[in-house]
Design a protein around this nucleic acid. Sequence first.
DNA 1: GCAATAGTTAAGTAGTTACTTCAGTGTTGA
DNA 2: TCAACACTGAAGTAACTACTTAACTATTGC
Lengths: 108, 108
Amino acid sequence: MLHDPAQLDLMFQALADPARRSMVERLSRGPASVSQLAEPLAMSLSAVVQHLNLLEASGLVRTEKIGRVRTCQIEPKALQAAEHWINERRLSWERRLDRLGDFLAETE
Amino acid sequence: MLHDPAQLDLMFQALADPARRSMVERLSRGPASVSQLAEPLAMSLSAVVQHLNLLEASGLVRTEKIGRVRTCQIEPKALQAAEHWINERRLSWERRLDRLGDFLAETE
DNA sequence: GCAATAGTTAAGTAGTTACTTCAGTGTTGA
DNA sequence: TCAACACTGAAGTAACTACTTAACTATTGC
């Protein structure tokens, strides 16, 4: 579920916006309400809610509404899935370089 | 340079598209020409070149033209920068949970 | 009860993105 | 030398994004 291409699209798309990254950054320091997330951002509450909905759709953030307050949390598993995709590609490239190095050493 | 917000925008934006991710995936297995990158994709060469230009602008891919062939390579440092941003946020969240755990254990 | 609070939803708009086709440019091999 | 090759660039278009404002709903505290 976390590795399907459409989910990765959503996660990377979500991380591509500085406002959304700053919301993730804020949430990495602990849960926050929508208003708290909006406070440092120079845009309407409405815009923040729309960003938040994207973050939630991507799986990076989970929210729970209690009374009139919506509390938001990071979902570390989703962050890890994005991290993992990148890491795999980088490792694959590095393994290839190692093999190439071995080959060159052998034929020396 | 690799950590400035605009560069992260470009990198995550680049990774948000399945065609571009498949190009990165192909390149993680070794260098390739533009035509080789295009071959498995159901779109015009021109579209592939446009994706490639985005990947290059993001810093994720480096290309070099020799004669009429443009050879493309992954830039692992850029991949690592994206990976690092995500990892920092996740670790920050996990450290917070640890402190919370310690606190609860103490006050028990 | 009722004003203030916290968020939601819809509609509109300017700007961006992901393509397409088509008409090039420069390189190479026979 | 010249046709095939490997791209490149411009222009057009449909769909999508990141906002805005304004009108709304549900909760809370006095």
